[in-house]
Nucleic acid binder design. Structure first.
Length: 627
RNA sequence: GGGCUCGUUGCAUAGCUUGGAUAGUGCGAUUGCUUGCGGAGCAAUAGGUCGGGGGUUCGAAUCCCUUCGGGCCCGCCA
């Protein structure tokens, strides 16, 4: 029993009143009220006033009078506000108990949007020629959070990480290794991925302008990469696998896990392109241009004023976007699966990570397609993703089966850009892997860890190194994950070294600290509270506010999952923490003079902690008991 | 030129999907709170033409049109 059920009951009762009164059918909304306007509110009177030609307040009066017969254990009062809203007041003496007990169940907050249907989430997908930078982190965190949310909403989720191991960027570092004298086995303390990105990639691409022959070599390499048996392809595979391993280490540290790694090289060699190309021809989705600037090319017509998009060049080779089409179709199960599967590793959470192979495999065949696919890529790819979305909609009957979840990029503040040697004259700067203008993810994590380690040590001198390390990890990862999702997806994040280290206010450490406070109370109490008691003692405003918020967990899960909006959950966590801190400040829990009250308040603290942790789990944040 | 997107207080941001009741929050600033369960906290004060204009509506931060400003995308590159 939660506010969601309360709302559903009120909605259904109001519908009954509409039917009884023969009112016109309107799509009214029943939702939690703003503070001081009851607990639940409805806009039905506004909508009806248009049809009935009466004042909203009069209609509200009449409906609330009519509603009296439905009052009972859940709703104790209905009120027609002069503004026209109908406000409902929950019966908290009844709800206290239900909410607090329910919140202790493992499945608290679960909702059933997915009905166990299979859904694919693809995220991370960083070119395997470099280490992750702070912009990639946003992708990982959004993708991982959305996966967790969808699981909570009863979808059967599979997470894919696409490895573009045969693209231009990989070719660039191969040029570096083979023609510019960079060692593929450097004596260096830094990760191999970072070395490849910082040294080989940046410095090799710098040389193109001086030595045009290098670009020619690159295009030869690019061709060779598609041929499985070429020496180049074999060499590239060892390099990209090594880089991928380093990248995954960072992703795992961020708390993300995956189900399968897909390699572009294998998709190319699998022949999927020809199959989907034939299908597109059949459905007349692609046209062979007879004349004009795109003569002899296969194109997709642009919508409205947009240009046509070339899929196959006049020389018969496929363009970049053409590589994405078979993969998208494969994810939706539109094409027969040409792959076998091998185990890559078992991840920290116990989940097996698979990888595709075109070779024989002794492992049983897996499948990683779903009736819905969500692809997390930044919005600079919106145009291409729009074309793919449109194409996919022609192959399946279901609506919205392919979803591009876009997000704005992470840019660097003027100050941070300056530390990297770029004077932007006070403006923010776009990151660029090619130019070496980016902030390395591992480095940010390390910096945050050091800062939180120092803080924690100061406050908890008795803790051993292992515990300190764990806490520093939880707080550092919490901080970075929270910063990546707390604002809307289509708002640019300007990364600044100074500001990213802030641990106060609307941040993960604030929320984690609140959890530590709750833990401290429970620890000092010295016993687990008994939930088999009367909860009507909890009635001051701080207690009631907290209970109500706990009771709204599933509403926020629903909102977040429906809208694929991670920030909804981060906001919820923050509001829970704020409500607890007010309670903590004003209400003393441990009272030796009053055992009954202490027990019931300990129930509330326990419930809060349990709910907060469940909510934080959805955004991949762990709250330590001490920090 | 075309497409997408952002614009809410010094800075950052919520609310916009579903129009309605007092536009909420953080940082920064000023001030107060520890003989109390952890001050990574709490409370208070100052700060807002919701970019501008028009329209729809009894009612617009929210919907529509227009305009200005910022960002991104638009190759037979990937």
């Amino acid at each position: 029993m939660t506010f969601k059920i309360l709302i559903e009951e009120i909605h259904s009762n109001l519908q009954k009143i509409i039917d009884e009164q023969n009112f016109p059918s309107v799509s009214f909304v029943v939702e939690p009220s703003k503070p001081n306007f009851g607990d639940v509110t409805c806009n039905i009177a506004f909508l009806l006033s248009k049809h009935l030609k009466k004042k909203p307040h009069d209609i509200a009066l009449s409906i609330s009078e009519n509603y009296q017969k439905f009052l009972g254990e859940k709703v104790k009062k209905v009120e027609a506000h002069p503004s026209g809203y109908i406000n409902f007041f929950a019966n908290m003496t009844y709800l206290n108990e239900i909410i607090l007990k329910d919140s202790m169940k493992n499945d608290y907050g679960d909702i059933d949007l997915g009905k166990k249907s299979k859904i694919i989430v693809e995220h991370t997908s960083v070119n395997p020629n470099k280490a992750l930078h702070i912009g990639h982190v946003r992708n990982v965190v959004i993708g991982d959070t959305v996966s967790r949310l969808l699981r909570k909403a009863n979808y059967d989720v599979r997470v894919l990480n696409y490895v573009d191991d045969s693209g231009l960027q990989v070719a660039d570092i191969i040029v570096g290794f083979q023609h510019c004298g960079f060692s593929d086995n450097p004596h260096s303390n830094q990760k191999f991925a970072q070395y490849c990105g910082d040294e080989v990639y940046v410095k090799t691409t710098e040389k193109y302008s001086d030595d045009p022959s290098l670009e020619k070599k690159r295009s030869e390499i690019l061709q060779d990469l598609e041929n499985q048996n070429s020496d180049i392809a074999k060499f590239a595979e060892t390099i990209t696998k090594k880089i991928l391993a380093d990248q995954l280490e960072t992703c795992w540290e961020l708390g993300s896990t995956y189900d399968c790694l897909n390699f572009e090289s294998q998709i190319i060699r699998s022949g999927l392109w020809n199959k989907i190309f034939e299908k597109m021809k059949e459905l007349k989705l692609v046209l062979l241009e007879k004349e004009g600037k795109n003569a002899n090319c296969w194109v997709i017509r642009g919508e409205k004023n947009e240009d046509d998009k070339i899929l196959v060049r006049s020389n018969g080779t496929a363009t970049y976007i053409a590589k994405d089409i078979p993969y998208a179709a494969w994810k939706l199960g539109i094409l027969d699966d040409p792959f076998n599967y091998q185990k890559y590793t078992v991840q920290k959470d116990g989940k097996t990570l698979w990888q595709t192979t075109l070779n024989e495999s002794s492992e049983t065949k897996q499948n990683f397609f779903g009736e819905k696919v969500i692809t997390v890529i930044d919005s600079r790819q919106s145009r291409l993703q729009k074309i793919i979305t449109l194409l996919m909609s022609k192959f399946t009957s279901k609506e919205n089966s392919y979803i591009h979840l876009g997000y704005e990029s992470v840019t660097l503040s003027a100050d941070t850009a300056k530390t990297l040697g770029l004077d932007t004259k006070g403006k923010q700067a776009q990151m660029s892997g090619r130019k070496g203008l980016y902030v390395n993810a591992d480095q940010v994590i390390k910096l945050l860890k050091q800062k939180t380690l120092d803080e924690t040590k100061k406050r908890n001198p008795e803790l051993d190194d292992k515990s300190l390390e764990q806490i520093a990890h939880d707080v550092a990862i919490g901080t970075i994950r929270y910063e990546m999702i707390k604002q809307d997806l289509n708002k640019i994040i300007t990364f600044d070294y100074e500001k990213s280290l802030s641990l106060e206010g609307d941040t993960a450490p604030y929320i984690q600290y609140t959890n530590a406070r709750a833990s401290r109370i429970l620890e000092k109490a010295g016993f687990s509270p008994n939930f088999d008691v009367a909860f009507d003692l909890l009635q001051n405003e701080y207690e009631v506010n907290l209970i109500k918020l706990i009771g709204k967990f599933d509403l926020h899960v629903q909102d977040a999952a429906n809208n694929l909006s991670p920030k909804v959950i981060s906001k919820y966590c923050y509001h829970l923490a704020v409500a607890f801190n007010a309670f903590y400040e004003k209400v003393r829990v441990l009272d030796p003079e009053n055992k009954t009250l202490t027990n019931v308040r300990l129930c509330l603290v326990t419930s809060f902690k349990s709910t907060l942790q469940k909510a934080l789990y959805l955004i991949g944040i762990t709250a330590p008991d001490k920090m």
